[in-house]
């Protein structure tokens, strides 16, 4: 499926990555990593996390983007001990614009790194729902991704924290933080969207 350039150039909210947002995302990371529970199960927010994994496996990136709020962050830290993202690089710290860039990159049809594409299977487990602020629910899980491409399998594993927010159209991802086990080392050539 080709993404129409007009759709990609539609009005985007790009003016929200400021100090307040950085502090909020960093706090979300810290509280999530230190969280001791007990957890509960909240079917609807947790279904978003499982659905995200399925859409990525289906390479249905347009529907995957639709899961995110316009003011979202997808952060993959690159340190064992994670610090303020304003002072250390991450594997990536993406706003909505850079998420769309990633999808558009694949849809150009010229991404050699995904020619042929990886066939992936994500296993999301240990799902728990934790803290609730007004209209949001934090979902914690483990994820194991197996990817097959060019005769070889690679695996990525890690913990992920999702802040899921209730909107008029249902639940959507506000923040996603993926803590890969090997985040401080090397991950090979990551050619697809994790």
């Amino acid at each position: 499926m080709q993404v129409e350039p007009e759709m990609l150039l539609a009005e985007e909210d790009v003016r929200y990555v400021n100090d307040e947002l950085y502090e909020d995302v960093f706090r979300f990371y810290r509280e999530s990593s230190e969280w001791t529970g007990p957890g509960s199960h909240e079917p609807e927010p947790e279904a978003v996390v499982v659905r995200e994994a399925r859409l990525l496996d289906q390479r249905n990136y347009e529907s995957w983007l639709d899961l995110f709020l316009p003011r979202c962050v997808y952060w993959v830290p690159g340190r064992e001990v994670v610090g303020d993202p304003r002072e250390e690089p991450a594997l990536h710290f993406d706003d909505h614009r850079r998420l769309v860039d990633r999808v558009a990159l694949i849809r150009t049809g010229f991404l050699h790194a995904q020619t042929p594409p990886s066939v992936t299977c994500r296993m999301v487990g240990s799902l728990e729902s934790g803290r609730h602020a007004a209209g949001t629910c934090d979902v914690f899980s483990s994820v194991l991704i197996d990817a097959y491409r060019g005769g070889a399998h690679v695996q990525y594993a890690g913990r992920q924290f999702h802040r899921i927010a209730e909107t008029q159209d249902g639940w959507a991802i506000q923040y996603r933080v993926l803590l890969l086990n090997d985040r401080a080392g090397s991950q090979g050539n990551i050619t697809f969207i994790l």
């Binding site: 950085y22 304003r86 002072e87 594997l91 991404l111 050699h112 050539n189």
Partner: peptide
């Protein structure tokens, strides 16, 4: 200023994720 350092961190990630994936692919080919 801190804004500059924050932007530098985000820029450093950018090409590694967007562009270098294709370089590495070519090396492997």
């Amino acid at each position: 200023p801190p804004e500059i350092n924050a932007l530098r961190m985000r820029f450093e990630e950018d090409f590694i994720n967007i562009g270098n994936r294709d370089d590495n692919e070519v090396f492997e080919r």
